[in-house]
């Protein structure tokens, strides 16, 4: 069902929504950019509708809402273990199609990868409802190449234009709330149909790519800072630490923390042995996971084409450029 709701009315609707939900959306954090006098656009909890930024891509992805950067799994004492039990409200996330689709990749890893579901992820994830935002595309995006430009996984859609908010509500539970504030109107979500960057993800990637010299370029260029993985909406690697509190080492907590395949220490073994020492090898691992290995396991691409890895890379390394190179190499091999 579609609705047209005037801005002031929508603010009231939002207020009512906030009584029942924790609402996350893209916001501007003034002067919190890495460089001085710059802002950070990121997801955060919002109190009012006016805080939401509709015209910019966030630097970080919404994954941290369901997969916190640091998460206490349990506390331990000498003879007991205690799980954090704080009951929270359900969660609403305002997101574009690519970001909503990224949750499909997260779900696959946390809930369908092996015999056990990840209970810590599930606990947060099952509380999430999405409000879809329209999108006209941004720099470095290529969602349309992956089909992640479109989604039907949303409870409502909102598009702010001029003095009104045009909405479509799919969630039966929410229809009452929406009809209270708006008049019925024909609304269909606006998606990006074609990005500025258009290319094909290679369907078949031969193992020959593994030893290809193309990766040595990244050994020279990549500094291993890990930004590409922390901003990625689909990177899910983590490590686990047992922290013993300073004033009493018999007490502490087990914590899981994001890890990055690009940063030193990832999958490091006793004696300093590791699988991938060179940054080129680490880039290969990341790229092939995004566009090949994950698909072999789950049947769809992990990457959603949001372009954040490229937005964030301080060395101007472009994933789409890398994918393009792989395509060319594979096409060349086909000919031979």
């Amino acid at each position: 069902m579609g609705y047209k709701i005037y801005r002031e009315k929508f603010a009231d609707l939002f207020h009512e929504l906030r009584a029942s939900y924790e609402i996350y959306a893209p916001v501007t954090k003034k002067d919190k950019g890495m460089y001085s006098d710059t802002d950070l656009i990121t997801y955060d909890k919002v109190e009012s509708f006016t805080e939401i930024v509709f015209d910019k891509k966030t630097f970080f992805s919404p994954k941290e809402i369901v997969f916190p950067i640091r998460q206490t799994l349990f506390y331990f004492t000498e003879d007991s273990v205690l799980e954090p039990t704080k009951l929270e409200k359900d969660i609403v996330i305002f997101a574009r199609a690519c970001d909503i689709n990224s949750f499909r990749s997260l779900d696959a890893i946390f809930l369908q990868n092996g015999p056990y579901e990840d209970p810590y992820y599930k606990k947060l994830r099952q509380r999430v409802k999405f409000i879809l935002l329209p999108c006209d595309g941004f720099e470095n995006c290529y969602c349309a190449c992956l089909g992640t430009n479109i989604t039907d996984n949303y409870s409502a859609y909102v598009d702010v234009r001029d003095d009104a908010v045009y909405c479509k509500v799919k969630d039966a539970y929410w229809k009452g709330l929406w009809s209270k504030y708006g008049e019925e109107s024909e609304v269909e979500p606006r998606y990006v149909s074609k990005n500025e960057n258009t290319f094909e993800i290679p369907q078949k990637i031969n193992n020959s790519i593994f030893e290809h010299q193309m990766w040595s370029e990244y050994t020279n260029r990549c500094t291993g800072c890990g930004r590409c993985t922390v901003v990625c909406p689909t990177c899910t690697c983590f490590t686990v630490h047992d922290i013993r509190y300073d004033d009493n080492s018999k007490y502490g907590e087990r914590r899981r923390v994001w890890a990055s395949c690009q940063i030193d220490g990832f999958t490091e073994m006793a004696g300093g042995h590791g699988y991938r020492h060179k940054q080129g090898e680490r880039t290969r691992f990341r790229v092939l996971h995004k566009i090949s290995d994950f698909k072999k396991r789950f049947g769809f691409q992990m990457c959603v084409g949001c372009g954040r890895c490229e937005d964030a890379c301080q060395e101007y390394i472009s994933l789409k450029n890398c994918i393009h190179k792989i395509s060319e190499i594979m096409a060349e091999e086909e000919k031979v």
């Binding site: 954090k29 919190k32 630097f59 950067i69 930004r227 922390v230």
Partner: peptide, 18 residues
């Protein structure tokens, strides 16, 4: 100097007062 803010990949370090 603010180098920690520039190095931080997750914005755990952010800018406070000038």
């Amino acid at each position: 100097c603010g180098e920690c803010i520039l190095k931080c990949p997750t914005a755990a370090w952010t800018r406070g007062e000038k």
